[in-house]
Design a protein around this nucleic acid. Sequence first.
DNA 1: TTTGACCAGTTGCAAAAAGCAACTAGACAA
DNA 2: TTGTCTAGTTGCTTTTTGCAACTGGTCAAA
Lengths: 141, 141
Amino acid sequence: MKNSKSNCPINQALEVFGDKWTLLIIRDIMFDGKHYFREMLGSDEKIASNILTDRLNKLEEFRILIKTKDAHHKQKNVYSLTNKGIDLMPVMVNLAHWSTKHREVSDKDKAHVMELVDGGQKLQDKMSTALREELKSVSLE
Amino acid sequence: MKNSKSNCPINQALEVFGDKWTLLIIRDIMFDGKHYFREMLGSDEKIASNILTDRLNKLEEFRILIKTKDAHHKQKNVYSLTNKGIDLMPVMVNLAHWSTKHREVSDKDKAHVMELVDGGQKLQDKMSTALREELKSVSLE
DNA sequence: TTTGACCAGTTGCAAAAAGCAACTAGACAA
DNA sequence: TTGTCTAGTTGCTTTTTGCAACTGGTCAAA
């Protein structure tokens, strides 16, 4: 509580996600299957490498993702969502859904989002399960 | 699209909400029934008045809220959510829900959030309807 | 075993945003 | 007319962001 402006649930969330980049990183891992620093660095929004480093470290401190060593390449780190991170899926889906209704979004993205909204809990559960499997596989090392 | 880093739905949302204050202002109006500048200025998180001015203006430009003159006090502005703003309710509820599970939140707030989650669509619809009534009453002037 | 591409970051500096406190001009109620 | 309340503004400092160049280590192929 010490470094908190308030313990209101919305504020508590914003102290983790209240910036332009954090949720994009989570999107990269959650929906785009990215796991490496360079993959995220290459995303459309062109995050700077120092900001990416900073956000990945913060997300690791918050235990929203974990960093593990790649088995086949000593220098590569594998970033995976924890359960705490995977639990953000409904937030992400609702945020994206709002955008499809009220912001400019391509038809392709729109269709992708509506699949997650209409497909409902079933598809989201399937995706969450897959992410939890990934998590299990890296946390065994 | 010109000033956009990308048209990904998550990014499109972050270009509106990707900061520490915007969603707190929406919370004030949506859940705490605040309508005036000074009321929002007084919230627990202690936003600075210049930042509040800036965010209210941006939210008005995005048409997420509208500013109208108070009927009984010439100097007062009444801030109300538009339908575009009211549509953010599922995002807010899911964000708050995540916080109750993964961040430090008071039991009172936790109960309040769970009411919205468990009470489900019915309670959220009721609240949305009330907000739309407010909107209707100010937009008739 | 050398070469060149690739890896996760780091560094230094400039620009933008946030934060703070004091202040303004008009409105209201007594 | 006095004091309080209104929505903001102003000037300044501190913090964060953004950019580009750079580092030291790794890897696969020649």
